[in-house]
Design a protein around this nucleic acid. Structure first.
Length: 446
RNA sequence: GGUGCGGUGGCAGAGUGGUGAUGCAGAGGCCUGCAAAGCCUUGUACAGCGGUUCGAUUCCGCUCCGCACCUCCA
C-alpha cells in the first residue's frame, strides 16, 4: 500500500513499525458546535484508511485513536452564554457528532480519548519538557521553546526566519521567542481549570494531542492524520512536543492531510453564511450519497461542494444499486482487484469508483454482486439492500403502487395504452418510476 | 511579503512521455406498444508561451489565473 507522506512530500510504500499493532491518530472535533461538511471530510477519509488497514493487517491489529477536544475557549464561551457547564456543551455536541458521522458510515475508532480525562498526562509532558530544557514557565504559562528544537518547521517546510517575518499576531511579552507556543495557560476563577505545578490553569491545544497519542498509542506512531490547515502550527507543534519529550527522531512516521471543502467555490465561513451542517444535509440526502460525494475527489484535493455534486453522487449510487438489484444473491467474493489497487494507491477513490463502474458493467453472477458489496464494505457505501435503496423515499404506499402496476398490466394486455400510460404518468408525478423488464414490471424512486 | 497546491472535454474528476479513465449531461442506434432501465456508438480535453524529445496534456523554464496556510479554522 502506498500513502502520500506530507513529511517527505512524496508517495511512499506504507510499512508499519509493527504489523501486529498498526497505530493511527487523527485530530478529532472540538465539540462546541454541530459538525459541518468540512468536519466530515477527515472523518470519512480516515475512516476509509482505517477500513483498508483493517483489511490488510487484520481488524485486531489496527489501533485507531481519534480524540474529542472538550477543553476549549469557544466551548467555555458557549457554556457561559447558555448558563450551563462546559461539560454539558461537550456532551451535547459530542453525541451529535457521533450520530452524524455514524450516518455517514464512519466506524467508531478503537479509542476516543477526551482531553478532560488526560490532564495529568499533559501536565507530566509539560514537566518533562521543562526538565529537558525545551520549555519554560512565565507568568503562570508554560511555553515551548521553539529555538530548542532544530527540526521545527520540517513538516510545513518553513524556516524560522520566514515565520518571524510573516508573523501577524502580536507577540505576548513573556515569550522568549516570538515563535514559542503555549503548553499551559492560567485560568481565571470563572474559567475551567485544573491544579498544576504552575497554578490553576488549562492545557494548550497542541499539548492535548501529543499527550493522548503518547498514552494510547506510544511514543512513535505509524500514521497521523488531519486537515491540511492543521499542518501548521498544530502538527508542527505536536512533533516538537512529542519528539522533545521522548528524545525520539520521529513522532508519526507518516503524516496525512486532507484538503478543504469549499461550498459553491467559496470558502465555508460563518460570515458568508454558507456553512453546511452534516445534519442538515443528512435530512435531505442519504448518508451514503454524502459520503460518496466526499470521496468523489481525491482526499488531498480541495472539494467543491454543491447541490449538483450531491445529486450526481446519489445517481451514481442508484446506478450501482440497480446493477446489484439485477443480480442473484448469495455469492461470496473479495472486492474487485482494480478497486482495491486504486484504494491502496494513496486512497485514490475516483479511480476506485471508475474501477467499480467498469466492474459493474460486466457483472453477471451472485459472486459479482458479492464483490460489489465487498467493495462497498471497504468504501463504506452499498450497505443497504438494493431494493430498499431504490424504493427509499417513496411518497406512495408500496401496496398502492403494486395495485396500480397490476391495473396497468391489465390495461396493457387489452392494448389500452392510454390508460396504461396515464397510470405510469401518475406514478411518475409522485416520483415513482416504472420499468418493464422481461420478468415483469418493477418500480423505483427516480 | 513568505510557503505550498492547483489550472484536464458541457459538468464532476482520475491518469499518463506515444493506443484520449470513469460518472452525470448531450447526440445517434439497439431494445420497448411508447417509455424507463440497460447495452452499443459518438464527442476540436489537457491555461498560455518557450525548451528537452523521434514524439509532451504528461519533463524543464517563464507568464497568466485560482486556492490554501503563515500561532489554536477539518
Amino acid at each position: 500500500m502506498q500513502l502520500y507522506n506530507s513529511l517527505a512530500a512524496e508517495k511512499q510504500v506504507f510499512e508499519p513499525a509493527d504489523p501486529s499493532r498498526v497505530t493511527m491518530y487523527v485530530c478529532g472535533p472540538t465539540v462546541y458546535n454541530f459538525a459541518h461538511i468540512g468536519n466530515a471530510r477527515p472523518a470519512v477519509v480516515f475512516d476509509l484508511l482505517y477500513r483498508l488497514l483493517r483489511r490488510r493487517y487484520g481488524a485486531e491489529h489496527v489501533v485507531y485513536a481519534r480524540n474529542i477536544t472538550d477543553i476549549d475557549d469557544k466551548m467555555m464561551a458557549a457554556a457561559k452564554q447558555r448558563g450551563i457547564k462546559t461539560s454539558d456543551v461537550a456532551a451535547e455536541f459530542e453525541a451529535a457528532y457521533l450520530a452524524d458521522m455514524g450516518a455517514l458510515g464512519v466506524m467508531a475508532p478503537n479509542i476516543d480519548p477526551h482531553c478532560t480525562h488526560h490532564v495529568p498526562e499533559m501536565i507530566a509532558m509539560a514537566e518533562t519538557l521543562i526538565a529537558k530544557g525545551h520549555a519554560y514557565e512565565a507568568e503562570g504559562h508554560v511555553l515551548f521553546s521553539v529555538p530548542s528544537f532544530d527540526d521545527y518547521g520540517n513538516l510545513s517546510r518553513r524556516s524560522r526566519d520566514e515565520q518571524v517575518a510573516g508573523a501577524r499576531v502580536e507577540v505576548a511579552p513573556f515569550k522568549r521567542d516570538p515563535a514559542d507556543f503555549v503548553l499551559w495557560k492560567p485560568s481565571s476563577d470563572d474559567q475551567d481549570g485544573w491544579e498544576s505545578p504552575w497554578g490553576r490553569g488549562r492545557p494548550g491545544w497542541h499539548l492535548e494531542c501529543s499527550a493522548m497519542a503518547e498514552k494510547h498509542l506510544g511514543d512513535v506512531i505509524d500514521i497521523h492524520g488531519g486537515g491540511a490547515d492543521l499542518k501548521f502550527p498544530h502538527h508542527e507543534n505536536e512533533i516538537a512536543q512529542s519528539r522533545c519529550a521522548h528524545g525520539a527522531d520521529a513522532f508519526a512516521r507518516y503524516w496525512m492531510h486532507n484538503g478543504f471543502v469549499n461550498v459553491d467555490a467559496e470558502k465555508m465561513s460563518k460570515s458568508i453564511g454558507n456553512v453546511l451542517l452534516a445534519r442538515d444535509l443528512l435530512a435531505e440526502a442519504p448518508g451514503e450519497a454524502i459520503r460518496w460525494a466526499l470521496l468523489s475527489a481525491h482526499y488531498r484535493q480541495p472539494l467543491d461542494w454543491s447541490d449538483t455534486l450531491l445529486s450526481q453522487s446519489k445517481r451514481n449510487l442508484d446506478r450501482l444499486y440497480r446493477t446489484m438489484d439485477g443480480l442473484p444473491e448469495g455469492g461470496t467474493a473479495e472486492p474487485p482487484a482494480a478497486v482495491l489497487a486504486a484504494l491502496e494507491d494513496d486512497l485514490n477513490t475516483p479511480a476506485a469508483f471508475a474501477a467499480l463502474f467498469q466492474f459493474a458493467r460486466t457483472a453477471k453472477t451472485a459472486d459479482d454482486r458479492a464483490a460489489m458489496r465487498a467493495a462497498g464494505d471497504l468504501l463504506g457505501v452499498l450497505q443497504e439492500t438494493p431494493s430498499d435503496w431504490l424504493s427509499g423515499g417513496a411518497k406512495v404506499d408500496p401496496a398502492e403502487i403494486e395495485r396500480l402496476i397490476e391495473e396497468r398490466l391489465e390495461a396493457r394486455k387489452s392494448k389500452d395504452f392510454a390508460t396504461a400510460d396515464r397510470i405510469r404518468d401518475e406514478l411518475a408525478a409522485k416520483g415513482v418510476v416504472l420499468e418493464d423488464a422481461a420478468g415483469g414490471t418493477t418500480w423505483r424512486v427516480g
